[in-house]
Amino acid sequence: MSNPRYWRENPSRYNLIGRRCENCKGVFFPPREICPKCRRKSLGKMKAYKLTGKGKVYSFTIVHDPMPDFTLMKPYIMAMIEMEEGVRLTGQIVDCEPEKISIGMHVEATLRKLGQEGGSGIIRYGYKFRPV
C-alpha cells in the first residue's frame, strides 16, 4: 500500500475523527461527505466529529486464519464495537484473552500498529480496542 493512501486517513485512524451530519445529527465513521439519510440536504454540513472511543462489543469472532500482517497475533479477537455515539466499528480487541470476550463487554479505543510494508517500508498505526 502506498503511503499517501494511508496517510490521508491518519486523523481518523489515530483519533477516531468521523463526521456528524448537522442536518440529522447522525454520526458516521469513517468520514463520508454525504449523509445517507439526508443526502443533498447534508452537502457542506458533514462536520468533523471526534468519537469518544468508548463502546460495547456488539459481536465478535476469534480469527485463526488471518491476513499476513496479523500472523504473529493469531488467534486474535475481531469485534464489531457499538460506540457511544451509536456508530459501529470493526476492530481488533487486544489485552483480552479470547475466552474472556463477550457481547456487551465495555471497551475503549487504543492506538496500535496495524501493519507494515515489510521490514523496510512504512508502519501503519491505527485504532484497536481493549477492555475497560
Partner: peptide, 13 residues
C-alpha cells in the same frame, strides 16, 4: 510488548 506495540504506541499511551 505485544507484536503490535512499539515505542510509538507506548509513547502515545
Amino acid at each position: 510488548p505485544y507484536p503490535d506495540e512499539d515505542v510509538i504506541t507506548i509513547s502515545v499511551e
